[in-house]
């Protein structure tokens, strides 16, 4: 179960995993996510499913190794099994024929954009992709975007690839140029999604964002993922993760995402990278490994 059949570092600290999960592969639709746990003392954390192959019974995950759990996941090897993998979770994206759609991703936020872009394309929309990252080596999934989209704009903060600037700068230019835009999908860091929402709001362009609040179970049981949308409390795990960007209280979302930032630092200090695959005998992040290290 949950065997890693392929893995590849597609950008610094950004990994693409193909995992055997036939039941999830069969059911999963664009916009849905899974919850993983990689170690018996580990956290449960969500990742969007980028793609799935029902015939092969596999799903594709792309993640950035930034926190304790994702760094542990990044250390696993081909053939290893992910301890717990559950899904698909969340509501699938509402796909419609909107007309001309702009799909934009910031950093590894590009990954969850892919399946939605593909579904929008299949529904007969014209797709413009905006693929943004900090610098050239962090621009991911360009080929796949080019396959799906009618046009792809690339931008980097430092100008090392494509336009110099943020994804919002590219979108703003498109709006100023009077390009027809019927629908915008933006996925990335919360400040980026908020900036997109503020940009499209005055033009009344329908804009959808995929939120990533803190989750525990991912099935509506805990309410940790609650967000305010149009003044109402919603559980992102079962009522989202996608919402109308113009109705989301981004300020609250950003604050809630910081709820454990002080403690996460503490957990990270406990984490020691391992050079060998993560097996049952190893407990990265716990005291036993530290003792081992001290002995050496």
């Amino acid at each position: 179960m949950n065997e890693i059949v392929d893995r590849e570092e597609i950008a610094p600290d950004t990994w693409r995993y193909v995992v055997r999960a036939p039941e999830i592969a069969r059911r999963r639709e664009a916009g849905q996510f899974v919850v993983l746990r990689v170690y018996d003392r580990g956290e449960r954390f969500p990742l969007t499913v980028v793609d799935s192959d029902p015939d092969e019974g596999t799903i594709e995950l792309i993640f950035q190794a930034v926190g304790t759990s994702t760094r542990m996941l990044a250390q696993m090897h081909e053939g290893d099994q992910i301890l717990d993998l559950v899904g698909p979770l969340g509501r699938p994206t509402h796909i419609d024929k909107f007309g001309r759609c702009v799909v934009m991703g910031g950093g590894y936020g590009m990954a969850p954009v892919i399946p939605i872009a593909r579904a929008l394309k299949a529904a007969g929309n014209e797709i413009v992709g905006i693929n943004g990252a900090r610098s050239a080596d962090q621009v991911i999934l360009t080929e796949r975007m080019e396959e799906i989209c009618d046009r792809v704009e690339i931008c980097t903060d430092d100008g090392s690839a494509g336009h110099k600037g943020f994804v919002t700068d590219v979108l703003q230019q498109m709006i100023e140029d009077g390009e027809q835009i019927d629908f915008v999908l933006a996925i990335g860091p919360t400040p980026m999604m908020r900036a997109v929402a503020e940009l499209t709001r005055p033009h009344a362009i329908k804009t959808v964002v995929s939120l990533n609040p803190i989750m525990v179970d991912g099935t509506g049981m805990c309410g940790g993922c609650r967000v305010e949308v149009a003044g109402e409390t919603k559980f992102a795990c079962i009522e989202g993760p996608e919402f109308d960007a113009h109705e989301v209280d981004f300020d609250m979302l950003m604050k809630r995402q910081q709820m454990y930032s002080d403690m996460e630092g503490e957990a990270r200090r406990m984490f020691k990278p391992h050079s060998t695959p993560l097996g049952k005998e190893e407990h990265p992040g716990c005291h036993c490994c530290e003792e081992d290290d001290n002995e050496r």
Binding site: Y39, R41, G42, E43, R44, T68, S69, V216, D217, M221, C222, G223, G224, M259, Y260, M263, E264, E266, A267, M270, G285, C286, H287
Partner: peptide
Amino acid sequence: SANEFLTRVNLMRADRFPDYHTPVH
């Protein structure tokens, strides 16, 4: 919610953070 608070402690062992990685405030 009590569900979240108790799940973090009972199921995820936040009482033993950071040995267990799930925190609770």
